[in-house]
């Protein structure tokens, strides 16, 4: 039962601080799920991201469900998923009901002027540590380089990048 509560609280914390959606929650998941509790390795987390990219729904929900299941079964996955969703639910309700004007205030705009670049820096930090852990040989470095190139220059859909890299993986490893 303790693990169920821990899953709920950890993912609630992740949900409460990751501003910007999608990969913005990476640094928090890394810190809590990988660093603090060791529920996943960076490699496993990267696999979940790949699966998230190929399955429908928000990455946050996908990661929470996956980690919840591996650590605490079906009950664990429900606890983690509800945890990651609850802060959104409460905050949006409060804002929609009472504070819709808060986003027009100058102070709020100033706060976000500070937070936005911080989010970019945090995701860059996550990109750095995932890259260090995932690109472990020359083949990996080539896959990394080609993927980056196709994303930047050819605007290839990420899902095709993953499928192509999977095929390359089967061939070269």
């Amino acid at each position: 039962m303790e693990i169920i509560i821990k899953l709920f609280l950890t993912f609630a914390k992740i949900g409460a601080f990751s501003i910007g959606g999608g990969y913005a929650m990476l640094p928090f998941i890394q810190r809590e799920v990988i660093g603090r509790y060791g529920w996943l390795t960076t490699g496993e987390f990267s696999d979940i991201l790949a699966i998230s990219q190929m399955t429908p729904g928000p990455i946050a929900v996908n990661s929470a469900t996956f980690v919840g299941y591996t650590e605490g079964g079906i009950l664990g996955s429900a606890a983690a998923t509800l945890g990651v969703a609850l802060p959104s639910f409460i905050m949006i309700l409060l804002i929609a009901a009472f504070f819709i004007k808060i986003y027009e205030k100058k102070t709020t705009k100033n706060v976000f002027r500070g937070i936005r670049p911080a989010v970019v820096g945090l995701i860059a930090a996550a990109a750095y540590s995932v890259t260090v852990e995932s690109v472990i040989d020359i083949k990996g470095a080539i896959i990394f380089g080609l993927s980056l190139l196709s994303l930047f220059h050819k605007k290839v859909d990420p899902i095709y990048v993953i499928i192509a890299s999977a095929l390359v993986g089967i061939i070269v490893y």
Partner: peptide, 18 residues
Amino acid sequence: EAFMGIRPAVAALIAFSV
């Protein structure tokens, strides 16, 4: 083997998202 190939690609996806 597929995931050996996918992991560096995911790293590229994150770098690109920055």
